[in-house]
């Protein structure tokens, strides 16, 4: 029951962010699905006693993998699918607590919350990049195209030669 509520709520939240970020209309339910899969990953990892940074890393990895699959399916840039999906993982609450502690002149806990927020946002970006690179390696062994980051690096390399 708890999992069901979490699933529905994360679907609503991410699909709504799809509307705010103006994703193409047919992609909005997919945004919601990507987001709720990512959030369910985060929630389950927390249940098995992973720390929040590790859980965020794994969840954003899941988000990127699912987003990449849909991006190839719909021939749409990956950014359309992952942007809304990572929103529930963004440490809004921790950043708020950090700001609030600093305003209340409790600098020690302010810095502590701030570092936690920084680590979590770093974990989100790391998860996305790791997933993109691993998928790219995977597709290259299958000889099937590449992600834009890799092809960008390839063009730059050719220029240097």
């Amino acid at each position: 029951m708890d999992y069901l509520i979490q699933f529905i709520m994360s679907f609503i939240a991410t699909a709504s962010f799809g509307v705010i970020f103006n994703a193409p209309i047919k992609a909005i339910p997919i945004c919601g699905l990507v987001g709720s899969v990512g959030w369910m990953g985060y929630y389950s990892f927390l249940q098995v006693n992973a720390t929040e940074v590790h859980a965020t890393f794994l969840a954003s990895f899941v988000v990127a993998v699912v987003a990449q699959i849909f991006a190839r399916w719909f021939k749409t840039p990956m950014i359309v699918f992952y942007v809304a999906g990572i929103i529930p993982l963004v440490p809004g609450g921790i950043a708020y607590n950090s700001m609030r502690s600093i305003v209340e002149l409790d600098y020690t806990s302010g810095i502590e919350f701030g570092m936690r927020a920084f680590m979590i946002s770093g974990a989100i970006a790391m998860g996305l990049v790791f997933a993109e690179v691993i998928i790219q390696l995977n597709y290259r062994t299958l000889n099937k195209g590449k992600t834009s980051m890799q092809s960008f690096a390839r063009i730059k390399r050719q220029k240097v030669k």
Binding site: M9, I12, A13, S16, I20, I87, G92
Partner: peptide, 23 residues
């Protein structure tokens, strides 16, 4: 290409409420 502003308003409000439950 943005959807009507009323719909955006509704979704912004529901996104915030849904995230509040998640947190």
């Amino acid at each position: 290409y943005f959807l009507p502003i009323s719909l955006q308003l509704l979704t912004a409000a529901s996104a915030g409420s849904a995230l509040m439950i998640l947190f």
